[in-house]
Computed example of a mutant assay.
Amino acid sequence: MRNAALVLGIIAGIWGMLVGFFGYGYTEFIDHFGEIPDLAEQVDHPERIRLFGLIAPVLAIAGGAMARSVALVGGGLLLASAAGMYFAFGYGVFTMFPIAMAGLGGLLALAARQPDPH
């Protein structure tokens, strides 16, 4: 289970980085060039997008990396990452996979009481 949490966390973090890059870039683009009515408008909380676009994927990668050695901490970081992605970006077509992978990885890491058999 720890290996599965590791893989899910790293994949969720990489996919979350793509979402974070796009979210950060979009908010900066709108700030620089202005809004286009009914086509490209600024989000309600651009600083939230920018902050969690960085923090949530880093938490997922760190949680996945820690899942093998310190499963409880890794699982907590993965669950925090899933919550952060949902809080910043909501649930949509591009966020459903990193949220689900980070959440499942967190649950698997928390459920892993014993080290994986070799």
Rank of each mutant, 00 (worst) to 15 (best):
L54Y: 05
A88S: 09
V93S: 08
I30D: 07
N3G: 12
M101L: 14
F33N: 10
F29I: 00
A65L: 13
M1R: 05
A88D: 02
L6N: 15
A4P: 00
Y86G: 05
A88P: 01
F21I: 13
A56E: 02
I14Q: 01
G103K: 01
W15C: 05
E28K: 15
V7R: 06
I61A: 03
G103P: 10
V70G: 03
H118W: 14
G64P: 08
G23A: 11
G84E: 02
G63P: 08
A100M: 14
I11P: 09
F97M: 15
I61Y: 04
G9I: 01
M17S: 11
Y86R: 06
V73K: 03
F97H: 06
G16L: 12
G92N: 14
P115G: 10
I49C: 03
I55Y: 05
A71G: 05
V58W: 06
G74S: 07
A40Y: 13
A4N: 00
L6W: 14
F87P: 01
L78W: 08
R48S: 08
R50L: 01
G64I: 06
V70W: 13
F97N: 06
I49P: 04
G25Q: 00
A111L: 13
M1H: 11
M85N: 05
A109R: 03
A56F: 06
A109P: 07
G25I: 05
P46A: 00
P57Y: 03
N3Y: 09
M1I: 01
I30Q: 08
L107M: 13
R2W: 10
F33W: 12
R68P: 00
F21M: 10
P37W: 01
A56L: 11
G90Q: 08
A67D: 14
S69E: 13
V73L: 15
A65P: 01
D44P: 00
G16W: 03
I36M: 11
S81D: 02
G90K: 09
P98S: 06
A65I: 10
T95A: 01
V70M: 13
A60M: 09
E41D: 05
L6M: 15
V43Q: 09
P57Q: 03
A67M: 09
G64H: 07
G64M: 05
A65V: 08
R2L: 05
P46C: 00
R68F: 01
E28T: 15
F33V: 09
A109F: 04
G92D: 13
G90A: 07
F22M: 14
A100I: 12
L107I: 07
G92P: 02
E28W: 15
G106M: 05
R2D: 08
V73F: 11
G23S: 10
M66V: 02
Q42N: 10
I10H: 05
I30K: 00
M85G: 13
F21Y: 11
L51R: 10
F21S: 10
V73E: 07
G75A: 00
L8T: 06
G53R: 06
A67N: 15
P115T: 11
I55V: 15
